[in-house]
Structures are given as C-alpha cells and as structure tokens.
C-alpha cells in the first residue's frame, strides 16, 4: 500500500484554481521530486498533505489525499494535529522561519519531543537528534540560539526538529535553495542518508534539475497546476518526452556540458486563472499543432519511453522530435 496517494486533487485559492486534477503516489521509504517553476502549484500541493493552508482561502472542490491510511481532506482539526508531526514533517527554504528565535536549540527540540514523544523528552534524545543531522559539538550547540548558527546549521537544526517526531514522510520544500553549493551538497547527502537509515519517505520540492538526479527515485514535472510528465529520474532527464521538460533542461546551463546558447522559452508561465484552453504549454511549444490549443491532453503512458513507467501529457512526443534551439 502506498504511503501517500493523491487522486485527482483540485485546489482553489481565493476561488482561483491553482492545482488541477493532480494524482500521484509515493511508496514508504521512497523519494519523489516535484519539479517546476514558480506558480506551477508544487508548494501548495506539498502544503495540502497536512492541510497547512488556511481555508478559506484554500478549498478543495475535488479529489482525495490518502496519507498513511487516512483520508486527509476529511480529517477534523484534532486528527490533523495527530497527523502533523507523527506522520508528516516539513522543512522549508528558510530554516530561520521555522525556528523560534528566543528558544535555545536544545529547548526547541525538547519542546517538539514533549508534544509528540513525551517519553523521549530528555537530553540524550536531544543530543542524539543533533548528532543525527551532523551538528558538530552538540553539547555546546544545544545552548546556542538559532541566530548564532550559520544557514547550513540552521537547516540541520530544522531537520532535527522535523525528525524529532519520527515522521514517515518528510516534505522538503526547496531545502537547499538558500544555501551555498558546498553546504547544499552536505544537506543533500544528509537527506539521502536519513532516507536510507530511517526508512523515511521524502517528498522534495525543487526547481533545481541537478538535485532531482541526485535525490529522487521518481520525478514529477509540473506546469500550470498539473503534472505534465513523470518517471524515474535517469530516463526522464536523459530522454524527456514532454516539450516543457525538454525546454526546461535546455534552458539550464550544465557545468560539464557547455553549450553556446541557452534555450529561450518564448513568453512566460501563465498565471493561475489564465491558463490557456487545450494544452497549457501549447502557446510556448515549438512542436504544437492546431489541435493542441483545443483538446486538453491527458497524462498517459509514453509509448516510446524505455523502461516503461513513464507518463506524459504530450501526444506528439517521440524520441526523435528534438526541440529546435
């Protein structure tokens, strides 16, 4: 049984559709990357898993979220409090925002333990968690305030807090975007180690395609509120089938394979409420056909992909249709 199953989820904010018919599954202990640009709906999808969006303005006109056997959209506030922490924890881009500035590092972790695992609310467990996330000299650091830590150490602390409750699913929303590359590499390495050692599932939200390759067992690319392509990372990144994924890959420089010019995707990502009819990428797509602007395509198995297990929303894709530069 999957740990997380989202079926046909629709999310409106202030009456405007921002996530539209999204379905995905995540098995226990696996990692899934949601990739896309600002406004594609990836972060609000992640926040919906523990119903962290206030309603109103958020409303869910359609769809279901099943997390660890619970129907999330039907839970009352008491059951939701149980779900948060015990089943799913979050880390965000700005670790400072999830830390209490006037509580010492050790007290913050102890507080989280007291709420979720009162039997373990002791110094030994606090130090064990600090060690688990690689904070050096934990006895000393436990007496520090968050502002005394660097950005990388703050993110480790946020991770320790998220792990204090022993979640089955860790949602990491752009956890390394604010960090330097060498620190980013340390945090990504730590996430992979934690996934392996604790058997915890990870949902990673990112715009960085390089990180996807490093972390994910499975990738879903989002555009304008929906998934346009999913699959295992190596095959998807190496041979993308949706024109948006291809364009995205061609617009990022890669350190090891220099190109003379980056791909300019014409136009801009459409804002929610202004999604074009038919295929939402069609107005910017180099291979669009007249029918693309009329029929909204479904997410279907890609007949050309090998190995199988790839879904794409583009009916015209084939391994040989290259995106003209």
């Amino acid at each position: 049984m999957p740990l997380l199953e989202i079926r046909d989820l629709c999310l409106d904010l202030h009456g405007t559709r921002v996530v539209d018919g999204l379905s995905l599954t995540l098995e226990p202990g696996q990692s899934l990357c949601l990739v896309g640009e600002s406004g594609c709906g990836k972060s609000v999808t992640a926040l919906s898993l523990a119903r962290l969006l206030d309603s109103p303005p958020a409303s869910y006109p359609r769809g279901e979220i099943h997390l660890a056997g619970q129907n999330v959209l039907q839970l009352d506030s008491r059951a939701l409090r149980q779900l948060r922490g015990a089943v799913v924890s979050y880390v965000f881009q700005e670790p400072g925002a999830s830390l209490n500035p006037i509580l010492r590092v050790g007290s913050q972790i102890r507080e989280a333990l007291q709420i979720h695992r009162p039997e373990a609310a002791n110094d030994d467990e606090v130090l064990r968690l600090l060690r688990l996330v690689g904070i050096p000299a934990p006895e000393m650091r436990a007496r520090d305030y968050p502002h005394q830590l660097s950005g990388g150490m703050q993110q480790r602390l946020a991770l320790a807090l998220a792990l204090a409750t022993r979640p089955q699913l860790l949602v990491a929303d752009e956890p390394t975007t604010a960090l330097d590359v060498t620190i980013q590499a340390q945090i990504i390495d730590l996430l992979r180690r934690l996934q392996r050692e604790l058997g915890m599932a990870i949902l990673l939200i990112t715009h960085n395609l390089g990180l996807v390759a490093d972390v994910a067992d499975h990738v879903a690319v989002m555009y304008a509120g929906e998934i346009v392509e999913t699959g295992p990372p190596d095959s998807l990144l190496h041979d993308p089938s949706h024109p948006y994924t291809r364009a995205l890959l061609a617009s990022v420089p890669d350190l090891h394979t220099p190109v003379t010019r980056l791909l300019n995707i014409p136009g801009a990502v459409p804002t929610p409420g202004q999604w074009p009819p038919g295929c939402r990428f069609a107005p910017r797509c180099p291979i669009s056909r007249p029918s693309c602007t009329q029929v909204h395509p479904q997410l279907l198995p890609d007949p050309h992909a090998s190995p199988p297990g790839r879904l794409t929303r583009c009916p015209w894709t084939s391994p040989s249709t290259a995106v003209p530069g």
Binding site: T182, G210, A213, D214, L255, H256, T257
Partner: peptide
C-alpha cells in the same frame, strides 16, 4: 576542486 565537485550534475556518471 571541492566547489566544482559540489555542483549537482544531470550526468549520472558524475554523481
């Protein structure tokens, strides 16, 4: 060397 090695790459052989 370390800075370059820390950059995530799309190339699986680099990882």
């Amino acid at each position: 060397q370390a800075l370059l090695a820390a950059v995530p790459s799309l190339d699986p052989s680099r990882r």
